[in-house]
Amino acid sequence: MNELLLIVSIAGSRVALPAAAVESVVELEALIPVPRAPAHIAGLSALRSRVLTVIDCRRSLELGTTDLTSAGIHEAAVVEIEGHHYALTVDVVEDVFEALSEPAPVRAPMEQGWERVSQGMVETDEGPLLLVDIEKLIAGPSVEARAA
C-alpha cells in the first residue's frame, strides 16, 4: 500500500487522515459563527478568497468542544468534498507517513464518535493508527445524537 497519511492529534488521540484528501494545513484566525448550524460546525473562515466551513472535530466526535475563541494557534486540515471546502480543527499536525498496510478492523472498543468515523487501523512507521473517514467527520453526529 502506497497511500500517504497525514498524522494529526484530535482530542488527544493520534489518528491518520488520507493525505491525498488534504489540500493544505493552515492556522485559523478569524471565525464567523453560523446561526442555527449543527453544533459541530464552529463557523466560517476565509483562506485565499475561499470560504471554509470550520468543523470542530471534537464536537463531531462527541468528545467535547475546541476553544476557538481564545487567542493562539488553531491548526486545521483543509479538505474539499463535492466542491465545498472545509477546515478540520485538530490539536496538532504531526507529519506525513506512508501506510504500510490496508485498513484492518479495530479489535478494541471505541467511543461512539470514533467508531462512526473509523475506516480501520493502518500500520505506519509510527505504529498502528486509526484511519479516519473525512466525510463522516464532516457530517458530524447523527440527527438522533444531536437531538439528545
Rank of each mutant, 00 (worst) to 15 (best):
I55D: 04
H84I: 07
V78T: 07
Y86I: 06
S45I: 13
H74W: 12
L68Q: 01
A39M: 00
L44Q: 05
E29R: 15
A76L: 04
A37H: 13
C57R: 03
L28F: 05
E29D: 13
T53H: 03
R58K: 09
L61A: 03
S70R: 14
A71V: 01
R59C: 07
V90K: 00
V93G: 06
E82V: 13
S45R: 12
H40V: 02
A71Y: 12
R59Q: 12
R36S: 10
E94I: 07
R36W: 02
E94Q: 15
T66P: 08
E75D: 05
L31Q: 07
G72M: 15
H84K: 14
E98P: 03
L28S: 06
A76S: 06
G64Y: 01
A87K: 00
D91Q: 13
E94W: 12
A87W: 00
R59W: 07
P33H: 13
V90C: 07
G83V: 07
A39L: 04
D67C: 00
V54G: 09
V96E: 10
V93W: 08
R58I: 00
G83P: 09
R48E: 01
E75V: 05
I41G: 07
R59Y: 07
L61G: 06
V54L: 10
I55N: 08
R50S: 05
A76T: 09
L47K: 14
L31R: 03
E29A: 14
A87G: 15
H40T: 04
I55T: 09
T89V: 15
V54D: 05
E80I: 03
L68M: 06
I32V: 10
V34Y: 01
G83A: 06
I32M: 11
L47P: 00
S70W: 00
E29W: 00
S45G: 13
V26T: 15
L44V: 10
T69H: 13
G43I: 11
H74F: 13
A99C: 11
V96A: 11
A39D: 03
A30Y: 07
T66R: 01
E27F: 04
A39I: 01
A71G: 13
E62G: 03
H74M: 08
I32N: 13
R36T: 12
L52E: 05
V92D: 06
S45E: 09
H85S: 12
E62F: 06
P38R: 04
C57E: 04
E94K: 11
E62T: 03
T65G: 00
A87F: 02
T53S: 11
R58H: 07
S101G: 06
L88P: 11
D67W: 00
V90R: 02
S60K: 04
V93Q: 01
V54M: 07
L44T: 01
V51S: 05
I55L: 14
T65H: 08
A76I: 03
R36D: 11
E75L: 15
D95N: 13
C57G: 03
S45C: 14
